[in-house]
Every structure is written in structure tokens, then in C-alpha cells.
Design a binder for these strands. Sequence first.
DNA 1: TTAATCAGGTTGTCAGACAGCCTGCGGGCG
DNA 2: CGCCCGCAGGCTGTCTGACAACCTGATTAA
Lengths: 257, 257
Amino acid sequence: MAGQPATPSGQDRLLKFKSLERGPSLPQEIVASLTGALLAGELRPGDRLPSEQALATEFGVARTVVREAISQLKYDGIVQSRVGVGAFIAQPQERTAFRISPACFKKRKELLKLLRLRNGVVIEAAADAALARSNRDIARMEAILKEMREAIGDREHGAERHFEAERQLIHVIAKVADNEHALNFVVMIDSQIAEKLRSVAVKNTKATELAAAAIEEQVRLVEAIKRGDPVAAREKARKHYDNAAQRLADRADLADV
Amino acid sequence: MAGQPATPSGQDRLLKFKSLERGPSLPQEIVASLTGALLAGELRPGDRLPSEQALATEFGVARTVVREAISQLKYDGIVQSRVGVGAFIAQPQERTAFRISPACFKKRKELLKLLRLRNGVVIEAAADAALARSNRDIARMEAILKEMREAIGDREHGAERHFEAERQLIHVIAKVADNEHALNFVVMIDSQIAEKLRSVAVKNTKATELAAAAIEEQVRLVEAIKRGDPVAAREKARKHYDNAAQRLADRADLADV
DNA sequence: TTAATCAGGTTGTCAGACAGCCTGCGGGCG
DNA sequence: CGCCCGCAGGCTGTCTGACAACCTGATTAA
């Protein structure tokens, strides 16, 4: 039976967690199914998972596939397993990783929350950057601002360029703040947002008057960093990034839940 | 050969990445070895990993073990694989998860950066909490403050109780701010720190005068939240958590790198 | 020279096996 | 009757071998 079609015979029977439709890899789908059950409250901390064998049968896959899925969940501290006993859903405070569920990009409210999380980090990073900036850093930031201004005139790719420049500025700020953890975090969240919402964000900046206002906000922010004024940097950063988040969330065509 | 001792015959030969000593699970060790190579710059974005077979031979394990390790790295977006081609180190902006390396708890500077990252989130959460708090929330926070005060008198477990109460307050603030992402994030970081540094932190609060000052800072924070004053909440939160981070990092017996 | 073909390597999945560990049950002993 | 020991069964962790689908690069044919 090796190499049989991965959508096996018994697939139309009722599955406990969720059916697999083929597309992404099988372990991935099982992870999604299990985390879904967790989110839905069908699986709660302390619960024991079915045995790997049972899950394999239920999902209609080989045990190795189930093991890969569970190994990913273990890596995040979502489940813990004990030899000879079984695998258990861990307590929330046992988690060792932070990751963004795709659901964040479905609802306007969720997206806003995600952006507010990111903003908290960026705002403090801006203050740190104001204390640690070098002339070279300032030059780099001003080059980014210049790129933004030039982008306004570019009718074709202007919005795209503006969008990228805004991201660049955030990354530079996090880098200047000299905090790799913050940098990693911001880059991670920002990339995910960019990937899922690039088109919306670009449409967003098409409104030139919005872009001009956004640039002005960022100019003030860079000025504060240049002055070495952490209090002002925080204030300007909060002003800009809160506005930007609001603008993006307002525009994003998401469910209003 | 099934079930043979997992430290196989050829294990004393030179390994490219790092030798396995047995202890944690084999996939875990391989993940550590690979991420170590990544950190050390021996593996860079775009590089191709050796084939699963080759890695299995090199590490002296079965291919399934290597697959589990790689599947974890794929889950984090650190590695991407293409059927028939191989597995590649992804670009940093492709990461989909944020996790804390154990190295953070080795160096004072790293720990401080981690705390500053957390603080950014907590500070903004405090402001949000000031806008969203209910009477019930306030009552909960004040109960926590009361617990802190009482803990001061407890010579035996006082420090421990104080430590837990401080964590509680952070979690409540994040919860009241009504931002699950921020809550998840803060809980994750905080639990990791608590796990690794509990003893140091407890010793830290043993100095009663420090604890009293810390409580006073947190009283002011809760008052600001109670007043519904986000600006003050931010300010008080920053004051307390920056101080707390500094105190902890100063005390923690870490390398001064 | 260019296009078709093929061989080898690689990932993804499947199947079966065994060691070591743990739990719970039942029987024997005090 | 109660307690302890031992055993059977189930579970995870690891190993082995196999095959399908796929891609790359070289060889061959037109």
C-alpha cells in the first residue's frame, strides 16, 4: 500500500477533528485541525490526545505524518508527551513560541489588535533609537523619507514604493534600537501583515493626501530621533503608528466582527 | 537493527554540525544543532541543507528523526523545502514564529533587551486597560496589590508570593486591555523568564525596601488605570516596568557581556 | 545547435517492527 | 480483608525499507 493516494479510502467517514482535503502537506493539515480543535475549546489544557496510532487511523494517514504534526505542537509547547503514557495539551503558560494565526487577517478587530501589539514594540524601539542613533542611522532614515516623497510622484509604482519604504523605516528603527529580539519580532509580524495585506495597503496609500500626512508624521518621528529626544520619539511614533494602524484597518476589506 | 542503541557505532567520527550526547529527544538535538549552525553563520539564508539521508547518516539517526527536526524548522519558517529538490534556509522575513533562545538568559544584556521588548507591549496594554477597565477589573487589581502588601510581612514565602503577584498583575492588565495577542505574547515571555529566573527574582524581592518601592509604583499604575487615564497609565507602567527590568537584570547572576 | 530523454537524487508518504516506559488489573501473600 | 508484586497491554521514540511524484543535469538523438 506504500505510496497509495494520500486521500485514502475511508476518508468520507466522520472525522473527529476535521477532514483533510489535500493541498498543503498532511502534517500541516493535522496541525491545523488540532489547533482548530484547541481554539474551539474541544481540546483543553490537561486533556490527553488520542494515541498516535488512533490519530493516524482517524485522519487516514501514516503514523509518521501524525508524529510530525505532534512534534511541531510539542516544539511550541502546546502539547507535551510522556513515553509510555501519551501526549497532553499543555497549559497556556507553557508555550514557548508566539505565532500569528491566519484568523488574525479575517476580522478587522483582530488585525487592529495585532497592529497595536506591534506598535507597542515599535514605540519603545523608537525611544531607544533616539538614544542610540548614529549619524549614519539618521542618514539612512532620511533616505527612506526621501524615497517616500519621491514615491508620491510615481503614479505607477508609487503606492508600492511607499508601502515598502514605511516597512523599511520600521525595520531601521528596530535595528538602531539595538534590540535583536524586538527586531525579530517586528520583522516577523510585519512580514506576515505585508504578505496578507499588501494589496489592501497599497490601495490605501493610493490616496495621495493620506500618504502626504503619513510622511509628515514620519518626518516628525525621525526628527525626534535625530534630536536624541526619546520622549518626543515615543510620542511621534505613537501618533504615526496608531494612525497608520487605524487607516489600514479601516480600509482593509475584512469582516466587521 | 530496529531499536538499536540510539547512539550508534559511528558516532565518534567528526560531525559537521555538532555531536549528539543523548538526553533530550533526538529531533530536538538536531534542531538545536541546526539552529546553532544558523546562529553561528555557518548556515545562511538561501543555503541548501544536506539531504535528509545525508543528515541522518551524519547525525547517526534514522531519517524519520531528521524529518521531525526539519519539520519543526519548516513550521517556524526557518526552512523551506521543495519536493525533488531539497530544503533551504529561508530569508529572515519569512519567519512565522517568534521564540526565545535559551541564550537570552545567559547574558545580562540579552535579558534586559528581552524585558524591554516585553515592557513595550505591557506599557501600551496598560493604556488600553485604562480605557477598557471595569469595576470588576479594578477590584482584581487591587486584590493583587493587597496580596503584595501582605507578602511583605510573610518572612517565609513572602518573596515568592510577591513575585507571583507581580506576574498576576501583568497578566490582568493584558487581559483587561482586551488584546489576546498581547496577552499570549506577554504570558509566553513572562513564563519563560519566570521559569529560568524564578530563584534570582525571588532573592531579588527579599530586599524589603525594594519590594516596598515596587509596590508603590504599581499602586500608582493601578490608580491611573482606575482613573481611566491612559497617558498616566503609560507613564506609570513605564516607570515601574523599566525599574523592575533594571533591578532584575542587575541582580541576575549573568555574564556581563 | 537544439530538443527530447533519461538517470539519479530528493522530498513526501506509507508500512511494519522493536525497545523502553507506564498504567491498571489480578492474583498471591500477610 | 488489605497490601504488594508481577504481568499484560498500550504508548511513545526510534529504526528500517519501500515507493510515488518531482526536479535537475547530463546524455543522446534529431
